[in-house]
Write a protein that binds this DNA or RNA. Structure first.
Lengths: 366, 366
DNA sequence: TACCGAACTGTATGCGCATACACTCTCTCG
DNA sequence: CGAGAGAGTGTATGCGCATACAGTTCGGTA
């Protein structure tokens, strides 16, 4: 790993000019076969790997797309570790717990996976940024200088920073539908999904006293979902004002609290939650109080996290297309790069309502 | 997004030289406060973001570390999608299934998460590569040209490619202990972990007829784990030759097959598996045959995947420190970059034996 | 044999930034 | 009041590659 070989080294070794070396990589067909093989032999002999920095500079594009997340795991307590010195094995009894913290991440994992996949398909490499620490603008600028386009989870960066960055490269916002900016957007059918689920509960299952457990206020996801729920009520001539709404924050813990409140004020026939974690927290408490789901009350969630698929009863929910969010973001980016002048686009991805045992009347045909 | 602003534009706008502009970013304290603010105002006015390509070229380092995985999800069937045109909602009954495919990924997700975290802590950005498609050498060279160091999951790339790349940048191999190369390594205590688990089964639970279900042959992970198991047998004077060994491949499906074979030839007191997926597959079949775990036979796994924590009974296993694998890889890389001349290092990370209900005698004190 | 175009290859230049070095001020001190 | 020391800033150059353009070679044709 002395100092890395450059085109010049390879050219000298192969007895050709640097232009020919460059062509061997960029447009192999423009080089005579014998010359090409000669050059490639030198490449191997010298361990030459083209510098992407030089390439990017000369070609005015990096071939990299960026994906930027808000801080996924709270890492306040991460310490420096000297990995040289470690014990070998620890044996412990593993007590069951909720494992909530880890699951939050699946969302990001899936988006990342989808993004990487689509970037690869379009011939790009993916760079990952996480908005932790003090200075988001610095972090974002850093990554923005490295990529041809940047996709960000909505809310991970203040709008003025986005404006700044977008003067250099295309910016795509994922999940979180703002209409008051000029960025491309990729969102999911939050409102439609909740609407369809609520229609199922109301029409198919005949429930008229469904209460709603909302997410944190002022978040677009929560607003859209609640809107879908309200529309369903209205369509069945149910007065939304007559039904209580509990204000949650998407956390399981808050779900547990809300469950207690609900129990105290009387169990409705259905509890429609703005996300899965709260629904799971609610089911936990209901079950310890001897209230059966779905026999005594129906519980539904939103997101389609793994735990809802493994709970007892399994949770009826609306599955978000997480991987497709990532894919679509890269797809939109590619589209923008191919034609920078085209009008702003907002992609809205479909969701799936998954009917499982936590909602009554579940009778799979198999 | 016309054409992006450069140092020259900013310099002209602020009425200074490009050196001063550069200094404002690189060594702000070397610039008079009034000058600096003047420059920053121009930066904002022009939407200037420094080009990492030019930076990397001039500074001879990119500030990026790479993490390279083997193809995580089989994507043969991935199709191009036009994300503009999508339906909104689909409603469906969700039939329970094993969900095996998705879970394989958690391993990579966790390694990635840890890698990103440590890279960030060390002031680097992370670039992700996935070794899919036809030409690994091309893919690896591509990413190798972009980064200051590259960590790869062992087995994702042929050795000669690694040799080539390592002439340019440091290479760290994750999980898969080869001794016959000159790369830095990060591994887990496979052998010690399995040894400790086996000792628990043999000594604490008094089992003497434990059969072993191995992974794919010739993989270092399998070899090490099997070695730990054999050592435990030997220490208790149990003749390894007297006990059957079933050869698996780490898949749940193969676990199911093996379970059938085991049932046919008589249930032992314990079934020790080289990984969780096979153990879960075995438990599935045993339960449909009316064989109780752990009452009739103990089953143990290795890896610590999420599903083992949610199965019934929960699976006793050895938890791999997946996130720490990623962190340690970046840590080793940083170390190597700081001092290229130092001797080759092999970090071995500790594992945790998690005793859960699938192994008899589980009595948490809480 | 001389000439022409196609196929190749070489030369020269610029991409945007970091930085060594030179230079200009402004103080401070003798 | 002049010299020296910083502090601050500008000039010039190179990082490694892509590529426009010029130059060369070669086979085929008149």
């Amino acid at each position: 790993m002395q100092k890395a070989a450059t085109v010049y080294d390879v050219a000298a070794h192969a007895g050709v000019s640097i232009a020919t070396v460059s062509r061997v990589f960029r447009r192999p067909d423009d080089v005579r076969v014998s010359t090409r093989e000669n050059v490639l032999a030198s490449v191997r002999a010298l361990g030459y790997v083209p510098s992407a920095s030089a390439r990017g500079l000369a070609a005015r594009r990096t071939g990299v797309l960026g994906l930027y997340f808000p801080d996924f795991d709270e890492v306040d307590d991460v310490v420096d570790v000297d990995f040289r010195y470690s014990a070998n094995v620890r044996v412990e009894f593993d007590i069951p717990d909720s494992g909530e913290a880890r699951r939050q991440n699946l969302y990001f994992d899936e988006v990342l996976r989808g993004g990487e996949l689509q970037a690869w398909r379009d011939g790009f490499t993916l760079m990952v940024g996480v908005g932790r620490g003090s200075n988001p603008i610095e972090m974002v600028s850093d990554i923005a200088g490295r990529v041809d386009g940047l996709a960000l989870l909505a809310g991970s960066v203040p709008n003025d920073v986005l404006e700044h960055v977008s003067r250099r490269i295309p910016v795509v916002l994922i999940a979180g539908a703002r209409r008051d900016d000029n960025f491309d957007h990729v969102t999911v059918a939050n409102s439609e999904g909740m609407h369809a689920l609520a229609r199922h509960v109301i029409d198919d299952l005949g429930v008229r006293d469904a209460i709603y457990v909302s997410g944190p206020k002022h978040t677009p996801d929560d607003w859209d979902r609640h809107d879908g729920f309200r529309r369903a009520l209205a369509e069945s001539d149910i007065d939304a004002e007559s039904l209580p709404v509990y204000h949650g924050d998407f956390s399981r813990a808050r779900g547990r609290e809300i469950a207690t409140e609900i129990v105290a004020s009387g169990i409705p026939r259905a509890i429609v939650c703005a996300n899965d974690q709260m629904a799971l927290g609610i089911m936990e408490v209901l079950q310890t109080r001897g209230i059966r789901v779905p026999d005594d009350t129906i519980v539904t969630g939103f997101d389609g996290i793994e735990e809802g698929r493994m709970s007892t009863p399994r949770l009826t929910t609306v599955q978000q297309p997480m991987a497709n969010l990532g894919r679509a973001a890269m797809w939109v980016m590619r589209r923008r790069l191919d034609d920078p002048g085209q009008p702003r686009i907002a992609v809205r991805l479909p969701v799936s309502v998954l009917l499982r045992e936590s909602s009554e009347g579940f009778l799979p045909s198999s």
